[in-house]
Structures are given as C-alpha cells and as structure tokens.
Design a protein around this nucleic acid. Sequence first.
RNA 1: GUGGAUGUAGCUCAGCUGGUUAGAGCGCUAGUUUGUGGCACUAGAGGUCGCCGGUUCGAACCCGGUCUUUCACCCCA
Length: 459
Amino acid sequence: MAIVKPSLARGTRDFGPELMAKRKYIFNILESAFRKYGFLPFETPAMENLSTLTGKYGEEGDRLIFKILNSGDYLGEVSLQQFETAKADGSRSFTGLVSEKALRYDLTVPFARFVAMNRGSLNFPFKRYQMQPVWRADRPQKGRYREFYQCDADVIGSTSLQHEAELIALYVEAFQKLGLRNFTVRVNNRKFFAPIAQKLGLSGGEQALATPLDKLDKVGAEVVKAELLEAGASTTALDGFFELLAQSSSPNTLAQLCGWLGEEAAALPKAEMEQVWQLLEALQVDTSKVRFDMTLARGLDYYTGTIVEVVTHEVAMGSIGGGGRYDKLTGIFGVDGLSGVGVSFGAERIMDVMEQLQLFPGHIYHACDVLVFHFSESESLHAAAVVARLRAAGVGVEWYSEGNKLKKAFAYAEAKHIPYLAIIGEEEAKTDTVALKNLAAGTQEIMASSQLSQQFIRA
RNA sequence: GUGGAUGUAGCUCAGCUGGUUAGAGCGCUAGUUUGUGGCACUAGAGGUCGCCGGUUCGAACCCGGUCUUUCACCCCA
C-alpha cells in the first residue's frame, strides 16, 4: 500500500493528553453545574436520518450539514433525468438522491426528535444535558471548527419562564466557575420581531428584520439601514427605530422599545422579558452579567421566544454560548404542544478563550502521584513490591521501565508533571527502603517502604 | 460557497534580484558526571523546502493547479 503522509481532515483536531486534561476540566465543571440544576445525562447517535435535520437550521444551515453517501450502488437508482435536473440546480437536489443520513449539526434537533419519539414514556418537564461533538461543513477559521463539542442543557414540556431564568442563572454560574470574569449574557425575545417588522413595513416578515439586525455591531448602522430600506421599510419608521438602536446599551432600552412599538403590540414580549428579569433577581443572579439586547437575533430558524447568547469581552472570539426557546420543534416531528428551551456551551471556543486567558489551574495535568525508578534488574522485584503497596493504599503510581539512567527518569517525570520520584537501588532494596524525592522542592528523604504511602495520604 | 494571505528541521523562524553540500535558536540524543534532573560546555542526529506539474542550463525562490492554516464576507459554538 502506498504510504500516505499523515494529516488531519480539514477543520478537525486531535486531543493529546494535555488538551484532554483541559477539556475534561471544562466538562467536569459544566457537568456538575448541569446536575446541580436537575439535568440528567443523555446522548444520541452521531448520525441521523437526513430528513430529521434538513429544514431546521435555515437555508444556510442546510448547506452546512455533512451528508453521508449511501452505501452500495448509490448511483444505480438515479435516472439520467434526475441527474440532469440536479446538475442544473447546482447539485442541490442531488444529495437527496444519493444520501439519506447525515452527521448531527447540533444537539437540540436530535433531542427534539427523541422527545417526539418517546413522548409516552417521558416524565415532563424533561430535562437533559448532552455533551457531544457536532459537525458543520463550514469554512474553518480561528475558533471555528468542522467538528466541535457542544454542551447543551434543555428542558422540553414546559412553557414556564422559570426555565429561562434558571438557564440564564446556569450560564452565569458556570462561566464564573470556569474563571471567566468579563462576559455578558445577551437576552432578547423573538416575539418583538414580528411587531417591529410590521411597524417598519417590512414585507418579508421577521426574518427580513432578523438577518440584517444580527450583524449590526459588525457592519454598522448605515449598512443595516440600507438593507432594511431595500426590504421595504418606510423611512420615517426606520429613523425612529435607529434612534432606539443608537442608545440600545442604556438600561431603559426595553421601555423605550416598548414605547416605540406601542403598549399593545409590545405587550407579550415585554411581559415575558420583565418576568424573566424579576425571576433572575429573585434567584439572586448577578444581573450585571445579563443585558437586554434588542439587536440579538440568532440565525437558527426554530427559536420562537426568549433568545440568549454569551460573549466574552476579554478576547476576540465569536459567541461562546447560545440558546433560546423553541415552541414548535417537536411539532415538526408530529408532536404539538411541547415547548422547549435550552442553552448551549461551545466547548471548543471556551477552551480557546481559557487558553488565551490562562485560566486553567496548574494542577489539572498530572499523570499520577509518584514515579518509581529502579536501577537494575536485581532491584525490580523490590520495586514491584513498592508499586503494589502504594497502589493498594490508593496512590497513583507509574513504574518506570527504561533503563538505569536516573537522569532520564527525572526528565520523564517532569514531562508528565509527576511530583515525586521514588528511587530504588542496591542499598534501598537491601534495607527495604525507598529514596523519595520531591521534584519541585528538590528535597529527598530515605524512608521505609512500609511508611511510603503515608506521605501521599497526608498530601 | 466567494475573495485575499500563508506553508522551509519536532517547535519558532532566517534564506539577499533563481546559481554548488538549505541555516539559526529552542528541543532531541550522547558525553563531561558507570546512583541525583532543571545550569554550563562538547559532539551528534534530524529537512522529498506542503503536494503535483510547468518555465529554465539550473527553482526553497518564477508560473499554474491542489491541499493545509489563516483573514474578510456569509453564517455560527
């Protein structure tokens, strides 16, 4: 077989022991936060039926789904006419002919699929957390991968705004536990969009508003204004709206927006926002980390109510978390009346942010407590006894196997961040002792083998 | 998916307008020190110059394609 130069598929990465230590550190913090709020673990397959995924993420999203080619003679069933048609529409209809499975694009849709399938046997409101990779056929950039982990917490089967408030509380708590200080949970409500679009006179409905609005902070007011004009907005209404946007960082934004819309039109989303806010305060959430942001839109089609997104101000990075309420997601699978709400943590980006801010504590990467080293074969049985004795006492031990060079054992232990080296030579074997060296301090002590485990149990 | 940049030793990078055996620092290996590292000194190993093709007497260097990474757009975690 030809030798292939080893390489990674585009947009993917390996996780060596050091990165794994960091990822597990993040996952452990998130997991304990999830459990603290009553969420239970849950997983779904990496691949779903293509029909489960398409149409849930918007047109752009559909394009980014990784499709899996059918097995066998997948071209045999395709007629020449179908082929020509597909060729004419830029291959769009072709995937449907040769692919019926795809890699999951997010964790929410598979979860909704599960709930719809198992509604009879679930205990509602059903709360689950899920930490698994998702795949997107996007063009990779910094902080943007084609395979990345999401950590989601969702509750399906309740319309209570308690869940919105609790999930925001969870966000604030988890990010603070991870060590992030300067971050904001942006909150908005999709129910504002229809009345705003109507007042502006947009023909395309709320989506015509959401897409341009979402990129306001990026492209600036003028560009957004131009796009909305093109979408049919009236000039006078637009001026009023941008006056609001110009001061959208003020704490009165919500009231101003509602004033502009009129009490009747704004009544529902306003009431929801206010209730969520009251609950946040009652839950003693640090609301300085939470901000109403009328420019937040979010791309995914399925959100219907409260939407949230988390950004950090300490490093340049896209959002590190996002979520919202979706009323009709299970409806697509034939089960109406099950509203859901959830949040997602972008593990990969959180990891990149924490890396840059050096938020990982130093102790998370160490293989075990002690490396046992013996000089020659004649001491190996004594060393084995020491190893066994330590492990029996619950101490993490690695037994060095490469030769008689103490120097190399030092380097090895250091590379794996093992704090202690237990040295066994002729003299130690004879007297049933061990020379225990603390690598960081450089101190060394001769002690009886039987006393050795005490050192670690104390520490 | 569209446009721009990038790619030289394990890592970070030199390499003058194309000209013989492609360099440095760090790291690695061995030794000074046959049982005590993190310092110093000495020696050494390691490169199809991303890949494929073209121009040329001659290409790491010029041209085309391709892949990777990266930036902007799009979108998003």
